[in-house]
Design a protein around this nucleic acid. Structure first.
Lengths: 186, 186
DNA sequence: GTTTTATATGTAGTTATTTACATATGGTGC
DNA sequence: GCACCATATGTAAATAACTACATATAAAAC
């Protein structure tokens, strides 16, 4: 089983979806932590079906092409439950912007400011989207959350996302400011 | 050019290294943001050589096998300088633990506590390592940092690493506490 | 009418990355 | 003497992931 397989099971454990809908979900919110394109999702769903972890039924539509709606099986739910708390190594972080920062001493200062201001803005925008989702979640689900409710899990995931985007956007801003100050100093 | 190629150029722009030494560096500190195994590094160095971005000379050793020491060329330095501030999309975050958190509502609470306490500890350890590196960097390089010095770039990279590990370890602790509190409530 | 957009599902080819295989030197521990 | 470990450099095979190709419906835009 691949991680993508468990990501799909994680969505299907909450409610049934078609491949197309799963591809949408893999953009946001869950896709913010594990991304995949439809070209990887359709074959993965076929594998899950072959392993008996999901079923699908054909749903005929009038206004759109027919779709296959996938449902998680008891075996799929068991596999997901086991995976969630299975021992796991700390994964390797892959962050190209931080990698670039390591060679920033070579860069043209104005170009560096532009790059980091652009990324600051993008992370601020993502932060706003997360905060809106959190607001919505609080209104719908309220504060009386139990650890065994899907809404609590969503909240936990969002909490890291918000912290991460806040940290990242502030780091981008700080880097840009260092170059801006160096520029006025000369 | 692949991102790994630029990662290697980023190291060689500071000082010459052999493939083996580069493989060590790709574990820490730069490897904390872009990891690679030696099986990927050796072929990548050959490609950089073929493109004229690096050169190498054979260094004979007595106590160890001979090694190839790679040096960046002016063309390599130019390519790196251009790449550092080139337009870049926000990359997709891939974080299996956050993905698991999304399905945590299915988990056995005791297993969840164990998983998140384990990861909290690992991230605290990584945080301590980063803080020690920062301490060392401050002692060696001092506070009078210019944006065009490699030490400043190292400091910038480390700053995000420290923020990230602090955020992540605290998030793990908070998640574990939620399950611990739920456990005593019942 | 024709193009574009959103829905809907796939396959093919390519690249990136990991795991495993493969070899060689010289020092240390048993 | 032999195993193990760090140093040192590679290749081969497998998998994961992305880009591009491929098709089809129906609504909306132009």
């Amino acid at each position: 089983m691949t991680t993508l397989g468990y990501a799909l099971l994680g969505l299907l454990a909450r409610e049934p979806f078609s491949g197309y809908e799963l591809a949408q979900k893999m953009k946001a919110p869950i896709g913010c932590f594990w991304h995949a394109k439809h070209s990887q999702i359709y074959p993965e769903l076929a594998k899950l079906k072959a392993q008996g972890l999901v079923n699908h039924e054909l749903v005929e539509q009038q206004e759109h092409p027919d779709k296959k709606v996938y449902t998680i099986t008891p075996a799929g739910r068991d596999a997901l439950r086991q995976w969630v708390t299975a021992p796991m190594e700390v994964p390797h972080v892959r962050d190209e912007l931080v990698l670039r920062a390591y060679s920033l001493w070579l860069a043209d200062p104005q170009a560096a400011i532009l790059l980091f201001r652009t990324h600051e803005q993008r992370h601020v925008e993502q932060l706003r989207r997360y905060e809106a989702l959190q607001q919505k979640l609080m209104e719908e689900a309220g504060a009386k959350q139990q650890v065994d409710s899907p809404d609590f899990s969503s909240y936990v995931t969002l909490a890291l996302g918000i912290g991460y985007e806040r940290l990242y956007s502030e780091w981008c801003r700080w880097v840009a400011e260092q170059f801006e100050q160096a520029d006025t100093t000369l």
